[in-house]
Design a protein around this nucleic acid. Structure first.
Length: 488
RNA sequence: CGGGGUGUGGCGCAGUCCGGUUAGCGCGCCUGCUUUGGGAGCAGGAGGUCGUGGGUUCGAAUCCCGCCACCCCGACCA
């Protein structure tokens, strides 16, 4: 049966409008009365809380501990690392008045926390025995962006920023790559997303980094979205902030540091990679509501059906899926029709819906519908005996999680194009996806390509080429094979 | 930040060009009855001073200027 979708734009026709519609009408977020800022509503914040839980656990499991540093950073600290301030100064917001008086020294609202953290580390680190330092903070930061979009780019955003200090270069480099793996695994396993992971070109590096690695997702409009970055900072910040330690050979050395972050932008990527014309499709691991129960109410049977729906809800709440209590919501509202509820929860992307009506009750079953493929099947449920096919439900949830992952993976594969000519290159990066193309490795070439196509190197493919391949733009011997694309 | 567009009950819009009684419509909302397995129907009702500040005028949603916000394209960025 056809569904009338008068309320949201079609994802297949207008991704941009669809994106805004599902966020506003799905009640994830709303625009705040401050330019470029958004309010996370209950459902949207719940998704972020899931990200915090799942990614946070991976970070903790890798040996890091959570901390919290101040929001405000004295100007003098921010100025200490030259590349860092050069990169960030255009987008820093400043506090110049406090308590009604002009401040002697302006305070920056943190755009990121390297400098204030480095300052404290210089105080805390004395010996090699104090290393490594493995910290993570969940925080908000402000970057004065010119153009904003919910989740993808906002003036204030929520993120996780990790900061580590190490005794040796090698250890810090390993940390950088470990985090990249954690980010990729989190995106793939928990969010069912598809990502390219690799090193950034110099021009795309973090301000103050020696090397930057990133995970990059591909969106349905053919544009890339950077979803997480991991930076090897070398000794640049250690030098600027004099973060030194006495090694076991009794000589004073500078530490090696890293920093890395995933922001709420990844929620924007999650939304875009998984939806359909009916709204969001959330992978069960991150879905705030994994199962919604919709009772089908008629006057004569209302009482029994409501009671059964409630019982089912309680039963499911005590069940665990993916090692966590099942997140179930029984939508017992008697003032809206079942059809309305179906659409509403589909818009919100709930992975599994359980319908229970008089016909089901008579047959001791419920109707289960999976969000991604809308497949229907019955599951045995006996309210009297309190029995339900819990394992089958777990299987349905696992199935959604896996199908989404496979679909995203196929979608990414279908958007990788090996290109041999610059014409092909241009066509690919304007709406099709990633161009996999040889690059001579120079800033000039990357800048020229960006000028001509607005595409940049998103990440480099591993390894250096033999030099026999010609750069897609300059024709000179290539140093790298790169994934190029236009980005958000 | 440059170019383009938009701003009128909660949402989507008409009205603006060419100023003139009580600013309309659809959806939503409230009440009642009938409904309820894919966004229910009928009846009644509430709700806006036209983004905002100034100006022109006897009179401004409508004309002029400033500002703000949002959308699209570009530049910049997680």
């Amino acid at each position: 049966m056809d569904i009338e979708l008068k309320h949201i734009a079609k994802r297949s026709e207008n991704l941009s409008d669809w994106y805004t519609d599902v966020i506003l009408k799905g009640e994830l977020a709303d625009y705040a009365p401050v330019r470029g800022c958004m309010v996370y509503r209950e459902y949207g914040y719940a998704i972020w809380e899931r990200v915090k839980k799942l990614l946070g656990q991976r970070i903790i499991d890798a040996g890091h501990q959570d901390v919290y540093y101040p929001l405000l950073i004295p100007r003098s600290l921010l100025m200490k690392e030259a590349e860092h301030i050069e990169g960030f100064s255009p987008e820093v917001a400043w506090v110049t008045i406090g308590g009604g008086e002009k401040l002697a020294e302006p305070l920056a609202i943190r755009p990121t926390s390297e400098v204030i953290i480095g300052t404290m580390w210089a105080k805390w680190i004395g010996s090699y025995r104090d290393l490594p330092i493995l910290q993570n903070q969940w925080a908000n930061v402000v970057r004065w962006e010119k153009a904003t979009r919910p989740f993808l780019r906002t003036l204030e955003f929520l993120w996780q920023e990790g900061h580590t200090a190490h005794r040796t270069e090698n250890e810090a480099r390993e940390e950088t790559r470990l985090i990249l793996d954690i980010y990729r695994d989190f995106a793939v396993d928990d969010l069912s997303m598809a990502m390219l992971a690799g090193k950034k070109s110099d021009s795309e590096k973090f301000a103050g980094a020696v090397e930057t690695y990133a995970i990059e997702g591909m969106m349905p409009d053919g544009k890339a979205l950077q979803c997480g970055t991991s930076h090897f900072l070398g000794q640049k910040f250690a030098k600027a902030f004099e973060i030194k330690f006495l090694d076991d050979d009794n000589t004073e050395k500078l530490v090696w540091t890293t920093s890395w972050g995933v922001s709420h932008r990844i929620v924007g990527g999650l939304i875009m990679q998984h939806g359909d014309d009916n709204g969001l499709i959330l992978p069960p691991r991150v879905a705030p509501v994994q199962v919604v129960i919709v009772p089908i109410l008629y006057d004569e049977t209302k009482a029994q059906v409501l009671e059964a729906a409630q019982k089912l809800g309680l039963l499911l709440k005590s069940h665990s899926v993916f090692d966590e209590p099942l997140r179930v919501h029984a939508d017992l509202d008697e003032t809206t029709t079942p059809g309305f509820k179906f659409s509403k929860w589909e818009l919100k992307g709930v992975p599994v819906r359980l319908e229970i009506g008089p016909k089901d009750l008579a047959k001791s079953q419920v109707m289960a519908v999976t969000r991604d493929d809308r497949a229907k099947r019955t599951l045995a449920f006996d309210p009297g005996a309190g029995t339900f096919e819990l394992e089958a439900l777990t299987g349905l949830l696992a199935g959604v999680q896996q199908r989404l992952r496979e679909r995203a993976s196929q979608e990414l594969s279908s958007r990788l194009f090996k290109v041999e000519s610059f014409d092909e290159f241009k066509e690919t990066v304007t709406g099709k996806g990633f161009a996999v193309a040889a690059w001579d490795g120079t800033d000039e070439t990357e800048a020229a390509v960006k000028e001509a196509t607005s595409a940049t190197v998103r990440v480099l493919k591993k390894g250096v080429t033999s030099g026999k391949v010609a750069c897609i733009y300059s024709g000179r011997p290539a140093r790298y094979i790169a994934y190029w694309g236009q980005s958000y």
